[in-house]
Design a protein around this nucleic acid. Structure first.
Length: 465
DNA sequence: GCATGATCATGC
DNA sequence: GCATGATCATGC
């Protein structure tokens, strides 16, 4: 009844026939009608369904829900995944790429090389389609078709990072912290939530606390990098034996190595040693200095972008206090009231939620010196927003959205309303206003993480290292 | 001393 | 041209 694919080439050749076409254009008209009859009841909730349709009606396979790859013999897992047009970069991924489910009890017994993750996802047939709002899934047009072989097709550095991400997730589950997993914990491979509703939970080893079900996923930024590197730049040099023999580093290690010669040095000493005459007056001076230390190896900036790492230059007072809070990009009132903190049907997070839960921050920490204009590079640290505080962030966000909906712009949460986050102006100046749902205009604002909260994170990091 | 509002200069 | 990250300025 179904077709058997024996080789990689058979699968790719077949897949290529969908390039620049929609499913509707390649399957018989009667089939289309039958599908439409069947799927009427789903309404808009047909997410994840396109992959099944492509398997069934285009490839004529029926892999079911197993730990084996969809094409069992050549060992290929099929992924249909949406892209959006982006004004600057031609295409970006609409979301993370969700891979196999994490079984908390099994995974703690696994090693990377014989992991169930690699067994299922070693070879991914990526079929990117162009997503359009309200379009029928049968009409999505497939733009890029690419076979990604994790062991051969990804650079050895990236694969090393993916392995370390996997190991980090497993280690966290092993110590009974599956309920504290966050996508922000890791760089390329994330543990994203995967459940129909938020009250679904799983048991975990070594802790009685229930944990959200999660799946492995390639984080959105990493998929964006793959789209740019693999699909637009065409041939990047294949990994040679030499490349594989190179020194392997995680992103964290590579950054630490960049900064370590300068830790404890003053800004003047750093500038002198790298022969720069940078002006120290601008507000973003320390940020530019941090950039300069990374950028002399230009590829590292791309590394940080694809790992969804945001650099924050932080300056402590001589006594160790942190004066300033940390800002996020300004929000738009009209967009904010349209968002859900977490939309279970689509798996979409509100912007602020996504920034907190998926981003990794690189804090470049400087400290002022008593009675001197000089500052000292104290340390660098990687930090991501801890899941134990996510409910507090959500509360602040909900309050904010509530105020905007009701037009109470004077009641937005301030610094005293939460130990974690607040709302403050974030425009070019006091005249910088944007439209509101009430048709009025209000000052441009953004969410901020509180100074004391970040200071605590910096102090905790010192204790742990 | 701290919360809050305002602004600057870079770099995309 | 404008968003952004980071800091400055004010006032209680």
């Amino acid at each position: 009844m179904t077709t058997t694919y024996n080789t990689k080439e058979e699968v790719i050749n077949r897949a290529q026939r969908l390039k620049d076409k929609s499913l509707r254009q390649v399957i018989p008209h009667e089939t289309t009608k039958a599908i439409e009859e069947q799927t009427k009841e789903y309404g808009d909730r047909r997410k994840g369904h396109l992959g099944n349709l492509v398997e069934k009606y285009f490839f004529d396979i029926n892999p079911g829900n197993t730990s084996e790859p969809d094409f069992a013999i050549p060992g290929i897992e099929l992924k249909t995944t949406p892209m959006k047009k982006h004004p600057r970069k031609t295409y970006v991924s609409k979301e993370r790429l969700v891979l196999s489910q994490i079984n908390y009890h099994d995974i703690v017994k696994e090693d990377w090389l014989d992991s169930s993750f690699l067994k299922k996802n070693k070879r991914l047939l990526l079929m990117f389609y162009l997503w359009k709002k309200n379009q029928d899934i049968l009409d999505y047009r497939f733009k890029f078709i690419h076979l990604l072989d994790l062991l051969d097709d990804i650079s050895s550095e990236d694969l090393f990072q993916i392995q370390k991400d996997w190991e980090y997730i497993v280690a966290k589950v092993k110590r009974g912290d599956a309920h504290l997993l966050s996508e922000g914990d890791t760089y390329f491979l994330g543990a994203c939530t995967k459940a129909r509703t938020s009250d679904v939970t799983r048991t975990q080893p070594n802790n009685d606390k229930p944990a959200k079900p999660r799946a492995f996923s390639f984080k959105q930024q990493y998929i964006n990098y793959l789209i740019q590197a693999r699909l637009f730049r065409r041939k990047t040099s294949p990994d040679s034996i030499f490349a594989k023999a190179r020194r392997l580093e995680t992103i964290e290690d590579a950054i630490r190595v960049r900064f370590s010669p300068y830790i404890g040095k003053s800004d003047k000493q750093i500038l002198a040693s790298i022969g720069s005459d940078m002006d120290s007056k601008p507000k973003q001076y320390k940020r530019m200095l941090a950039n300069l230390l990374i950028e002399r190896e230009p590829s590292k900036m791309e590394e940080l972008e694809k790992a969804n790492v945001t650099i924050k230059a932080i300056t402590l007072e001589p006594d160790g206090n942190l004066r300033e809070s940390i800002s996020f990009p300004a929000f738009d009132y009209l967009g904010l009231v349209e968002q859900d903190w977490y939309d279970e049907a689509s798996g979409t997070m509100a912007d602020f939620h996504q920034q907190l839960e998926t981003k990794k921050f690189l804090f470049v920490v400087f400290q002022k010196k008593h009675g001197s204009k000089e500052i000292v590079l104290k340390k660098t640290m990687f930090w991501n927003f801890p899941m134990r505080d996510i409910d507090e962030a959500k509360r602040v966000w909900m309050t904010t959205v509530g105020c905007i909906r009701e037009g109470r712009y004077g009641d937005l949460p301030g610094m005293d309303d939460s130990p974690v986050a607040h709302v403050r102006p974030h425009g070019r100046n006091a005249n910088d206003t944007i439209p509101t749902p009430q048709g009025t205009r209000e000052k441009r604002k953004s969410f901020w993480l509180k100074n004391k909260y970040i200071q605590k994170a910096i102090e905790d990091d010192e204790k742990s290292t």
